[in-house]
Design a protein around this nucleic acid. Sequence first.
DNA 1: ACCGGACACCCAACG
DNA 2: AGGGCCCATG
DNA 3: CGTTGGGTGTCCCATGGGCCC
Length: 558
Amino acid sequence: MKGWTAPPAIELPPRYYLDNFYALLEFVEAKYGQLLLASEREFLARFEALSEEARCLFLRLANRKGQCFRLSKLSYPEIGDLQPPLQELLQGGFCLRFCPEHRAELPLVVAVFTRQELCQLWKLLCPGVRGLSALKKEALADRLLQEVDHDELCQAIAASDTVVLQCYLQEYELLKFLFFGHLGGEMSEFVIRDLGLVQYESLALEKLVAKFSSRQEVDDKFWISSVYQQFRELREAPVAEVLYSWYGQQAHRGSQLGAEARPTFDRLTLKLARLLERQQQPHWALEVYRHSPQPPSRERQVRLLHKAGEQQQALELCHQMSTHPLNAEEAIFAQDYCQKLERKKAVRSTTQHLKEADTVHIPREYRYAVEKGVIRHFSEQGYEALFSENYLFQSLFGLLYWDIIFDQDVPVYHSPLQRFPSDLYLPQFLDRRQAQLQARSQVLSTSKRLLKQVRTTYDSKWGLGNPLVGWHENTLPLLEAACRRIPAAALHQVLLAMARNLKEYGRGFPDLFLWTKKEYRFVEVKSPTDALSPQQLYWLRFFKEAGIRAEVLRVAWV
DNA sequence: ACCGGACACCCAACG
DNA sequence: AGGGCCCATG
DNA sequence: CGTTGGGTGTCCCATGGGCCC
Ligand SMILES: [Mn+2]
Ligand SMILES: [Mn+2]
């Protein structure tokens, strides 16, 4: 019965979303009350003064997409007649009734009408109009706005339905942002939790700590996310000149951001520079890459410098990367490229490794399922086999370190709906928990103790959300098969290496785990068209050092 | 941890 | 007239 | 024969209804 979830038997109160918002408010006021601006306080005070029906309606609208709504499309039995609360919202400044004064919002307003309704509006205003049927909705809306007088259009819209524009949405978004600690948090997460669709590890509310300590941090994170949003729009129709000069306007503030907002700026920088490369603008791309130290910035810079004929600079950067690599890819790339630039060697070490691997012949039917073909091959020789991939070591990490991951004595939990510590994927994770993690290796130094710890944690935590652990039918069998056969000390070495930076070292593990009574091995399967990735090579080498048996197997079709 | 990673698979261009 | 996406819902 | 870049499909509550094409 595992994997099957029964339909929710839990019934939520009719106005559950109001309760959820109050839970959110209580938390935000307790943790961030002193960071709120006058406009946000005003919103809260006026919200409190509304009737419950009006508060509910406001939240119903706020939890929908957009800011423009048509009364005729709304129906909320738990609120009842929507007219009185809507009047309240209009009088209280929580909504604006759409009229010609708001013609600037016309594009949004037009979008909430159906294609058919837009045709009718158009025909009403221009009785002779023709040739509309060929246009798709979006094109129709564009043409309508181009060709029809905006004042008349506004009046026709206002006459056909009650259209309202919601206000205070920035304030609402900010409160949500403070509660979740990141953007993109949704009120539906309360519902998902309360229906039991996702189970959270229990967190002590009194131990939660604020994620932001100053308004500056909050504003920075907000600013960079709106900048990133703009980038997504620019990317739709990329023009190199526009991208480059737009980036130039953001770069100054971007480079001064603190630890909370900086990663978003780095992502923006890397994505935008890559886009400039694709636009055949290597010089601009190179300049943009220099604003971020994060991978793959340096790799791209080396390639661009090389192509531009700047051998000295390329080599210098390559050496820096080689001595202080930020991940496996940088390390392996830098080593190979240094040798390439010095004309010592032409083949990448990943392909070299692949070339030296054994080949196995697999029937062509297993195209698109190479690993299954290899499993079949080995099971015919008496092996047992399971898919291992990243699941094995991630779930082992998640289970053996469960209490360390959810340890609230480290200030990394900022919200009741948080599923993992805010530094799980950062280098600080290891820095802050060195002693505990080392101690765990000591205590679980034998396979027997380690295995017992895996089983008891698996049983007691089954079903709880942990990004590293999936509760699938093969999860425990795989863990047991591997932990019984691989020396405990070697497993701890891998786990501690992962802890240095889970973002970079949490992937690249071999495809399969195979075993018989006598032996075991990991196998990374490679189809004829596939290549070995640097992360995969990194772990293959690491396994060899640690005495874990692993090999690459090339597939040839028959 | 902001529709993105992580995989595997396929193809084309270039030396 | 259906198939499929988007979005609101609990 | 090697590298590099580009493209695709898959998975993240579950379900139903409205709208688009
Ligand atoms: Mn794999
Ligand atoms: Mn593989």
